[in-house]
Design a protein around this nucleic acid. Sequence first.
DNA 1: TTAAAAATTTAGTCATACCTAAATTTTTTT
DNA 2: AAAAAAATTTAGGTATGACTAAATTTTTAA
Lengths: 217, 217
Amino acid sequence: MQTLSTEDYLKAIYHVSQSSSGAVATTSIAKQIGAKPSSVTDMFKKLSDQNLVKYQKYQGVSLTNEGVKTALRIIRKHRLWESFLVSHLNFNWDEVHQVAEQLEHIQSEKLTNELERFLDYPTHDPHGDPIPNRALFMKTYNKILLTELPVNKEGVCVGVRDNSSGFLRYLDRRQIGIGTLLQVLHREDFDESLHIQAGKSTLMITKKTAENIYVKP
Amino acid sequence: MQTLSTEDYLKAIYHVSQSSSGAVATTSIAKQIGAKPSSVTDMFKKLSDQNLVKYQKYQGVSLTNEGVKTALRIIRKHRLWESFLVSHLNFNWDEVHQVAEQLEHIQSEKLTNELERFLDYPTHDPHGDPIPNRALFMKTYNKILLTELPVNKEGVCVGVRDNSSGFLRYLDRRQIGIGTLLQVLHREDFDESLHIQAGKSTLMITKKTAENIYVKP
DNA sequence: TTAAAAATTTAGTCATACCTAAATTTTTTT
DNA sequence: AAAAAAATTTAGGTATGACTAAATTTTTAA
């Protein structure tokens, strides 16, 4: 049984290790968790004692099989709760994160599995991220960044890379959400901004925006 | 903002103060929380510093107005979650307590209020206990113990005093639940056991059982 | 009303999970 | 290949919330 804090660390290590290769560095977790590197070192030792990570001094950590499983169980709960909040409790996709961060620590297998049934076994959360099933398996589409979508080819928005409230609200205002049909009409050479068709409206977005939107061609 | 632990203490103090008069003793909270009396004394001091209780050395504590409000906010969440677990997630009334003990600490006013709306503003939880509304007001019926119901008068089961799994499962097996119509057919002078009509079946229950069932005449 | 019992508090520890400051190792730059 | 910079760890400290054992106060009983 983990403490709140060890769960947070495992999740953070999982996320960082997904978006980069090799061992996970102390500093990257410090940033993610919002703690000092020295505190992270302390925790790395504890996690290593519990065989949840492999830790070599000065070389960072990587999750063990048991560590990955624990992380996925938390991510499963997080994403199921986010789905519930949006589908039944009138939360917007930019509001769910903070509450799901709390709910993901609730310990009850029955609760998690019944919630999944109640939601009718969703495969993706409101941000388009895949939800691990009971066996901790998740389907990932082969999505690409909007910057990589060829001009004039259509794609469906299936997720975002930046999950911050600010970005999500910005997309809301531009009427872009999961499922929105997107098409790059023109790529500006000068500043790499894009003219796109989003649903029924045409608009201009910056390169920075485009590289935070995932599409399925 | 309270810690998990202070919330548990406030709730415990509230419950004990409801079922007895005067100040709440150190030992009674120690029993309720499952901690040693010395730990309880420590916490009484902390709660007193935060003006959540009035504390006099050797004389126990009583909740301040702010302490009562905090306790009721937690109880509100606890009972709403219990209702949700039973009504939507296939939990039995004897299974909900442990999970609700965790869920009651989730901090999000929007979550609580939306959950209440989703459940259509329930007034009582699965054990018949009243749920404080947004203004922390709760309706209590004038219920009596089954031992006090006059022979041959009918009453509806509206709650239980003992919320333990064991007792609730015992009632389940006897097909007694919230809303069951009860009638005392005969009171045995010898051991104070009761012959009762419960719904459509007749059965015998002990005094101990009867004094843990609340009825509305 | 005093002695015994029970309840409560104090004093001193412990584990968790954080911190700062200093030391050490690794990486990068010159 | 040194020197400088960056990353990481160690050492020592803090607050929380628990504990044990001993001291104190209150309550009960003789």
